[in-house]
Computed example of a mutant assay.
Amino acid sequence: MDKPFKTYRQQLTILRARNLVIKDGSKAIQILKNEGYYNIINGYKDIFLDMPQTKQYGDDRYKAGTTFEHIYALYNFDRNMRAILLKYILKMETSLKTKVAYYFSQTYKQNFNYLDINNFDSSNPQTATKLIADLSSVITKNTKKGALGEQFYHYLDKHKELPLWVLVTKMTLGNIIHFYNGMTMQTKLLVINEIISTYEKTYRVKLLLTPEQEEKFVSNMFAFINIFRNVCAHEERLYSITVKNNNKVPNIALFHKTLPSNFSSHFIDCVIILGLFLSKRDYAAMVGEFSAEIASFAKKLPQNMFNSVLIKMGFSKNWKDDFKLN
């Protein structure tokens, strides 16, 4: 079916015909000019639709009392939640890069140790070869005399070396996870032991896991968080995301005893998982920012619509308790 061009006023006319209340047409048009009809309406209309009427008419129909402002509030809420989540995922990313660079460099002390295939897991040489090729690509892209490549250029020109702790600054979270996965089990466990021992000391708990369980557990968490990082970085819809790939769904019950039956790969699960990698202070700050944003958003929607959003995010009725670790 063709989708012919519609002016902003025509767009509002269509929305009003679909039972959407628009209190201030001029303001709504300005919002559409800045944000786009598709981004706001197509991206965030779902929980506001009256599905029986939508099926009956073969076209969208909104629940009674739904306003343009309600949809736009959800749009802004999702954007703000993405910004907060990305902020703390980046903290986790920096921490992971630091640990991987430290323990890999401690184990393999030669120059350009990360370009030696013998320093990686020998069970899958194809993966190690691709990893080294990817690292070489990162170096090439960032080794130019000038502002963007000055850091790499300085090390290569003056020291004839580019330490891993410098290289990781230009690696993405996906890059560093790929690097971690390619390391030997012995080196991985050095990283894992620091993560888990810090968590155990912080929260005064003991995680009874074998080294193999720890490795799979942590690796799955990295992959899971990376999915959310990409959602945030590419400004995709966050609040209703559900990770469907079971290989990337970690067993959260191994460290969070209060939510084993509720884990469903939603937003809340990503937040809780970050608690394993962030400092206690950072985790508390993150939870505080999320809580404030949720409280503000609650004032902008009717209670039933607000509850629908929380359910989509994986929250329970006592959502403040969901954030608690042990």
Rank of each mutant, 00 (worst) to 15 (best):
residue 255 F to S: 03
residue 290 F to T: 14
residue 246 N to E: 11
residue 19 N to H: 13
residue 149 G to R: 12
residue 234 H to C: 12
residue 13 T to A: 10
residue 238 L to W: 08
residue 305 M to Q: 14
residue 8 Y to D: 07
residue 249 V to I: 14
residue 231 V to D: 02
residue 103 Y to F: 14
residue 48 F to R: 14
residue 256 H to E: 03
residue 150 E to I: 09
residue 257 K to G: 09
residue 270 C to G: 11
residue 43 G to D: 06
residue 322 D to Q: 04
residue 119 N to H: 12
residue 288 G to C: 04
residue 260 P to Q: 04
residue 5 F to T: 12
residue 162 L to R: 07
residue 80 N to I: 11
residue 310 L to I: 05
residue 204 R to W: 00
residue 144 K to T: 15
residue 73 A to L: 06
residue 259 L to M: 13
residue 40 I to Y: 14
residue 323 F to L: 07
residue 261 S to W: 00
residue 241 I to A: 04
residue 132 I to E: 06
residue 133 A to W: 03
residue 136 S to H: 03
residue 145 K to P: 01
residue 76 N to M: 10
residue 323 F to T: 09
residue 227 I to R: 09
residue 5 F to Q: 12
residue 168 V to G: 14
residue 319 W to E: 11
residue 145 K to E: 02
residue 235 E to P: 02
residue 239 Y to H: 07
residue 305 M to R: 14
residue 85 L to Y: 00
residue 320 K to Y: 03
residue 147 A to H: 06
residue 215 E to R: 07
residue 101 A to M: 01
residue 159 H to P: 07
residue 40 I to D: 04
residue 127 T to R: 15
residue 116 D to I: 12
residue 31 I to H: 10
residue 263 F to E: 13
residue 233 A to V: 10
residue 118 N to M: 06
residue 170 K to Y: 11
residue 25 G to P: 13
residue 178 H to N: 14
residue 306 F to C: 01
residue 223 A to T: 10
residue 217 F to S: 03
residue 30 Q to T: 07
residue 12 L to K: 05
residue 86 L to Q: 09
residue 263 F to V: 15
residue 94 T to R: 10
residue 147 A to L: 08
residue 280 K to R: 14
residue 285 A to Y: 00
residue 193 N to F: 02
residue 112 F to W: 08
residue 211 P to S: 03
residue 82 R to T: 04
residue 98 T to D: 05
residue 242 T to L: 07
residue 78 D to A: 03
residue 45 K to M: 07
residue 279 S to W: 04
residue 275 G to W: 03
residue 255 F to G: 04
residue 122 S to R: 12
residue 42 N to H: 15
residue 142 N to M: 02
residue 17 A to L: 15
residue 89 I to V: 11
residue 122 S to T: 10
residue 114 Y to L: 08
residue 272 I to E: 01
residue 145 K to I: 12
residue 263 F to C: 13
residue 36 G to S: 08
residue 318 N to K: 11
residue 172 T to D: 00
residue 135 L to W: 02
residue 183 M to Q: 09
residue 187 T to C: 04
residue 18 R to Y: 14
residue 40 I to Q: 08
residue 247 N to S: 03
residue 162 L to E: 05
residue 202 T to D: 00
residue 261 S to L: 15
residue 261 S to K: 11
residue 16 R to K: 15
residue 213 Q to A: 07
residue 182 G to E: 08
residue 41 I to F: 08
residue 179 F to G: 05
residue 30 Q to S: 15
residue 98 T to A: 15
residue 49 L to P: 06
residue 301 L to N: 08
residue 267 F to P: 05
residue 165 W to C: 15
residue 212 E to Q: 12
residue 298 A to K: 13
residue 204 R to K: 15
residue 165 W to I: 14
residue 54 T to R: 09
residue 276 L to W: 09
residue 232 C to P: 05
residue 251 N to R: 03
residue 217 F to W: 01
residue 185 M to Y: 01
residue 301 L to E: 02
residue 244 K to F: 08
residue 126 Q to C: 00
residue 299 K to S: 15
residue 26 S to L: 06
residue 7 T to Y: 02
residue 47 I to N: 04
residue 114 Y to T: 05
residue 70 H to T: 00
residue 261 S to H: 03
